[in-house]
Design a binder for these strands. Structure first.
Lengths: 154, 154
DNA sequence: TCAGTTGATTGCATTTTGCAAGTGTTTTTC
DNA sequence: GAAAAACACTTGCAAAATGCAATCAACTGA
């Protein structure tokens, strides 16, 4: 089955459904690539996910202290959006009622493979801050790596 | 080797290198997730890649006719940027000197796994336009799928 | 010669972002 | 128990990015 040939035969598969369904849909187009970009295709969303998934961050304060220096208004809007689209859940801390803990939903956890593939791509072409040994392990044991991170939240 | 534990022990691995190298670097931070977002983390870059990789589009005109309706100034700036950062190469058509063909570099082709993982993620949670059979094939034969697309450009 | 195509640019309105300051609530400190 | 600090936002405003229509020069084909 040559998917590419299929897509070439009917490339509209990667683009519209029908003009009707497009009217009901919130998306620019029903192409899955496009939908993914409308959900996490900006400079900040996956960074928040990274902080939660890989660094174990939970609170607004922790996110706001990441080295990319996200502005607090942007952070607030991203946390709201990510929660609204079902990638994050929030709960008030039991110890301190000021603090809100954010954690990934199953939908959010399922983005780990995306982030991993981005990291492996960057590793191949750009200098970055993750030690070689960890990249190598990530590359050779991708499934286990993903499973281990998931396990922290389930 | 528990990568996550390592990262928790020294989470700065996912963020800065040194303050020195950060000054020389064009990136907000040397975290690979961040770098990937600075390269393709916007609403349009991966859409152009999709058009090239999955739909076989080559020219400005073809990209501009995609259903997401990218504005021509944005398209021009994205094509310029993607070429500058080495994801695309351009060459003037032999038949028509006005037409510029864009094709993926090796660095661009290596983004296929990222796009595939995004598609598989979206498939799990959102309605989209790619037939089930093709998603299933993509899921079960991911490596082959990626290799087949690569082969079209090598 | 000349209308039409192509990739790209310009001008301008709209939207999003960045930044500093401020808000309301809760917790800590004295 | 009042003042100060911490936390998660919110607001106001300047700056940047985006969307859109018009336009451009280079080129093509008739």
């Amino acid at each position: 089955m040559d998917i590419f040939a299929n897509l070439m035969r009917s490339p509209e598969n990667l683009i519209p459904m029908t003009t009707n369904s497009q009217a009901n849909s919130p998306w620019r187009s029903p192409c899955p690539v496009n939908i993914s970009l409308e959900l996490v295709g900006d400079k900040w969303a996956l960074l928040v996910l990274r902080d939660i998934l890989f660094k174990g961050f939970k609170s607004f304060k922790e996110f706001s202290q990441s080295k990319e220096r996200i502005a607090t208004n942007i952070l607030a809007s991203r946390l709201k959006f990510l929660t609204e689209v079902g990638l994050l859940e929030s709960e008030v801390s039991e110890k301190d009622a000021r603090v809100i803990f954010y954690k990934p939903t199953s939908k959010g956890l399922d983005l780990i493979p995306v982030i991993v593939s981005l990291v492996l791509w960057v590793d191949k072409y750009e200098k970055h801050s993750v030690p070689k040994a960890e990249i190598e392990w990530m590359k050779k044991n991708t499934k286990k790596f993903i499973a281990e991170i998931r396990a922290k939240f389930e």
